[in-house]
């Protein structure tokens, strides 16, 4: 592993993303990416007793499907979710019988998991499985308000994605897709004093800007190097802020940027405010749409910058602002 610049690490081994699997709920199946998801649950309770159990079921389904089709026992399972004590992932790991690390950086958890897994493989492990998940109803009851409460949220708010995404990393290119993780940029916390819990986009945009600028400087590249630069869940409003922040730093990513939260839903037709968010947002969109684009050679170089807002259920009530982080990774087709 070679350190480049301040926060970027380039891998000397080929770390292949050999397979992915995405599971979503009914609302995501009504969005523009509906034909890309591997499995859709039409009932977001998945026939379980609670939304927490439903989320575990989705997370487990994604993980088990990948293991089933690849006849592989990964050396480690690394995962995360939004619930307290990342309980969804712990209960998923309980069923998988694999060595387990839990990670938490809210909606950037998929990025953190990819980074940790890549370093594991660079250091000697043969394979790793990662997954992250979120569920609208389990997140709502933990972070916001009861489901049946009549509440009107502002237009810059976001809708937590119900879904899970899993990916298999290996030193062997099992499906001969030739898709490798080239480098990672470990994010630093950005906190610009946003206190409104409905304004995740504004809280997270500076973190995304910081990681993108650092990756460009560390690797000595610019936006034209990439086919796409994808953020996790800035949604439409946060994306707007990100483009402005980067313009102020003389960087223009308008032609390459898209955001998973803005892609997963039709923000005009579906009632989702400014778009999707959640640990499952980046995971489901990357593991379906973007992975397919890479497999079909429609794109060759992708900079992934999932972002996470690191507030707790009580921090904002204590007057704290919302810190955010963005963990970036660069994926290329060999």
């Amino acid at each position: 592993m070679i350190k480049k610049g301040k926060q970027t690490y380039q891998f000397e081994k080929d770390i292949f993303i050999t397979d992915t699997y995405s599971v979503v709920g009914p609302k995501e199946n009504e969005g523009p990416l509906k034909n890309y998801f591997h499995k859709v649950f039409s009932d977001d309770l998945c026939g379980k007793n609670s939304y927490e159990c439903a989320e575990q079921h989705m997370s487990l389904t994604a993980a088990q499907e990948i293991l089933k089709t690849n006849y592989i026992n990964p050396d480690i399972y690394i995962g995360g979710d939004l619930l307290n004590q990342i309980i969804t992932t712990a209960f998923t790991a309980r069923q998988l019988n694999l060595p387990y690390w839990g990670v938490y950086t809210a909606c950037a958890s998929f990025g953190e998991a990819i980074q940790a897994a890549s370093i594991c493989i660079e250091s000697g492990m043969n394979s790793a499985m990662i997954s992250t998940s979120s569920h609208f109803s389990s997140a709502e009851r933990q972070y916001r308000t009861p489901l049946e409460l009549g509440v009107q949220r502002p237009d810059w708010a976001q809708w937590t994605v119900t879904g899970a995404g899993a990916a298999l990393l290996s030193t062997n290119d099992l499906d001969s897709n030739g898709i490798v993780i080239k480098s990672i940029t470990v994010g630093k916390i950005s906190d610009y004093g946003v206190t409104d819990v409905d304004n995740m986009g504004a809280a997270m945009a500076p973190a995304a800007a910081d990681s993108i600028i650092t990756h460009f400087e560390d690797n000595n590249v610019d936006s034209s190097y990439f086919d796409y630069i994808i953020t996790g869940d800035l949604a439409t409003y946060g994306s707007d802020i990100l483009i402005s922040l980067l313009n102020k730093n003389n960087i223009d990513i308008k032609n390459q940027h898209c955001d998973c939260g803005a892609l997963i839903y039709d923000t005009k037709a579906q009632h989702v405010y400014s778009g999707g968010s959640g640990a499952g947002c980046f995971a489901t969109v990357f593991c379906s749409y973007f992975y397919k684009l890479l497999c079909n050679r429609k794109i060759k170089r992708l900079l992934c910058v999932p972002t996470g807002a690191l507030l707790s259920t009580t921090s904002s009530q204590q007057g704290e602002s919302i810190p955010a982080v963005a963990h970036a990774f660069c994926v290329e087709v060999k």
Partner: peptide, 17 residues
Amino acid sequence: MKKMSKEEYKTLYEQKK
């Protein structure tokens, strides 16, 4: 990233709301 004060950032994102 170029230094930006919290007030400057607030002006930016309030304007884009």
